[in-house]
Design a protein around this nucleic acid. Structure first.
Length: 229
DNA sequence: GGCCAGGACACCA
DNA sequence: TGGTGTCATGGC
């Protein structure tokens, strides 16, 4: 699956652990703590996770700002909105018609199955929460893991485009690796600590923003640049 | 004007 | 199971 698969499993895990520790330490030394996620409540984290899908955070933040200014940053507020009103408010986030349906689907789910309680919905074991999130239309693996990690504070590693891009460009994983395999790659090697998972993911996104664009000087990405320095 | 951004899903072979 | 098209605004 990933490179180095010929080694013994124990040795491979130790090697991976060593690599991830080195990457994390260097990123942290270079960039410092990122202190994600920029949201005030778990519900806001969830909205952000949906609205930022394939979208720059700034645009998602603009949509959340619209909801906040109208006093609609709550399950009840969202459920009381018509489809067109919702679309107009979240328009800056892009894909606004689809995202309006996704946000509504999530709120409907919690309203129907959890009596509208976000707190109760989030308060249980990690796998149960993750599995249920994945049954909701519009919530895929990355969004589910973001919600588990940043809203429920459970250690589910979030794999995103930058994680994949950086690790495949360094030859640490195969390009064909799946989301779940890459998630397992991290979760087998790292201590299951929420803060560690949050910071690692945030640092990878940060370094991605800074140096790992698809164009220009991104190959090799800056991670390799400062590794070689 | 073109490329890209903190994806998910339907559809097809 | 894997590849491809679609959704769409805003910044650079």
């Amino acid at each position: 699956m990933w490179n180095g698969a010929g080694r013994g499993r124990t040795g491979l895990r130790a090697k991976r652990k060593e690599l991830l520790r080195e990457v994390y330490d260097r990123l942290m030394a270079d960039l410092g703590p990122q202190k994600w996620w920029p949201a005030e409540t778990p519900f806001e984290v969830i909205l952000g996770a949906i609205l930022t899908q394939n979208t720059a955070w700034k645009n998602a933040a603009a949509a959340i700002g619209n909801l906040r200014r109208n006093g609609l940053l709550s399950l009840e507020g969202i459920l009381g909105l018509g489809a067109q009103e919702m679309e107009a408010l979240i328009r800056p986030s892009g894909f606004y018609r689809q995202k309006a349906k996704k946000v509504k689907a999530f709120c409907d789910h919690v309203g129907t199955n959890w009596n509208g309680s976000i707190e109760e919905f989030l308060s249980r074991d990690m796998e149960s929460l993750r599995t249920e999130l994945l049954t909701i239309r519009g919530i895929g693996r990355e969004t589910a893991d973001s919600i588990v990690l940043y809203a429920a504070f459970q250690p589910s590693f979030v794999v995103d485009t930058y994680t994949y891009r950086i690790f495949s460009r360094h030859g640490w994983i195969e390009e064909s690796v799946s989301y779940d395999d890459l998630r397992e790659y991290f979760m087998e090697a790292l201590d299951p600590k929420v803060q560690l998972f949050q910071e690692f993911h945030a640092l990878l996104v940060r370094i991605g923003h800074l140096y790992c664009r698809k164009t220009a000087f991104c190959q090799p990405c800056s991670l390799r640049v400062f590794f070689d320095a």
